[in-house]
Amino acid sequence: MSDSNDNVGIVIVSHSPDVARGVADMVAQMVGIEVKVAWCGGNVDGGLGTHVPAILEAIDKAWTPRGVAILVDLGGAQTNAEMAIEMLAEDRQGLVVVCEAPIVEGAIFAATEAAGGADLAAVRAEAEALRAP
């Protein structure tokens, strides 16, 4: 079994903490401890929403030298995730990507690919291949 630091990490960003946690659980069931998975969801007041500080924290938790792939649900999650990437230290910015993919299936496909040791571009491509034509 490879060490989780050898594989791309996965971050789940949903407007709902329940959705984010649930997706992370489903991912963990597939890849166990081979892939670092972190999630965040909800706004600062505990309501539905997404916000940058929580995304930064999740990226930090899932960080590996191979990079991090982020899966998001709706528009604000994507905008906030992209903003968070811009706020990372410069040497990390190029190693974190937002996948344009359905959050549940995308996270599972991305994590499965990551568990096999694929690089960040391949992990993202695997998730994004799920997009509706």
Binding site: N43, V44, G49, T50, H51, V52, P53, G76, N80, M83
Partner: peptide, 9 residues
């Protein structure tokens, strides 16, 4: 850092 949603970014 505080607004959230798409309008924060």
């Amino acid at each position: 850092m505080t607004v959230g949603g798409a309008s924060g970014p």
